[in-house]
Simulated scan of single mutants.
Amino acid sequence: MMNRMDSGGEAKLRYLDADFEVVRPGAFVRCAVTGEAIPLDLLKYWSVERQEPYADAAASLARELELDPGLRKRSTR
Rank of each mutant, 00 (worst) to 15 (best):
R14Q: 12
W46S: 00
G35S: 00
L71F: 10
L67I: 03
M5A: 11
R74T: 10
K73C: 13
K12V: 15
Q51R: 09
E52G: 05
Y15E: 02
I38Q: 01
M1N: 13
A11N: 00
P53Y: 02
R30Y: 06
R24L: 15
D56K: 04
I38S: 00
A58L: 12
L61M: 08
S47Q: 00
L42A: 15
V22H: 00
R72I: 12
A18G: 15
V29A: 02
R72W: 11
L67T: 09
R4I: 15
N3C: 01
L42W: 09
R63F: 10
D68T: 11
E10R: 09
R24A: 08
A11C: 07
N3S: 10
K44V: 10
Q51C: 12
L13R: 04
D6K: 10
A62L: 01
R30F: 03
K44M: 10
S75L: 13
D19N: 06
V29Q: 00
E52T: 07
K44D: 12
G9N: 04
G70R: 06
K44Q: 13
V22P: 02
L42H: 15
D68P: 03
Y54F: 01
D56Q: 01
P25E: 09
V23L: 09
D56W: 05
E21N: 09
W46K: 01
K73P: 07
D6V: 12
A57Y: 11
R50Y: 09
F20K: 00
M5W: 06
D6A: 06
S7Q: 12
R24I: 14
R77L: 14
L71E: 09
D17S: 14
L43F: 02
A18P: 11
V48R: 07
E52P: 01
Y15N: 08
K44Y: 06
D68A: 12
E36N: 03
Y54C: 02
V22C: 06
I38G: 01
A55M: 04
S75H: 12
D68V: 08
A59D: 08
L16R: 15
E21F: 14
A11Y: 02
A37V: 11
D68R: 05
L61K: 06
G8A: 13
A57T: 00
S75K: 13
R4A: 14
D68C: 07
M1A: 14
V48G: 05
P69C: 00
P25A: 08
A58M: 11
F28A: 06
G70A: 13
Y15Q: 10
F28E: 03
Y45N: 08
D41Q: 13
D68N: 11
F28P: 02
D19M: 05
K44L: 13
S60D: 10
E10S: 10
N3M: 07
C31I: 00
N3W: 10
L40K: 02
P69E: 06
A62R: 04
K73R: 15
E21D: 08
R30S: 06
M2D: 12
T76K: 13
M5V: 12
S60P: 07
D17C: 11
I38K: 05
S47P: 06
L71M: 09
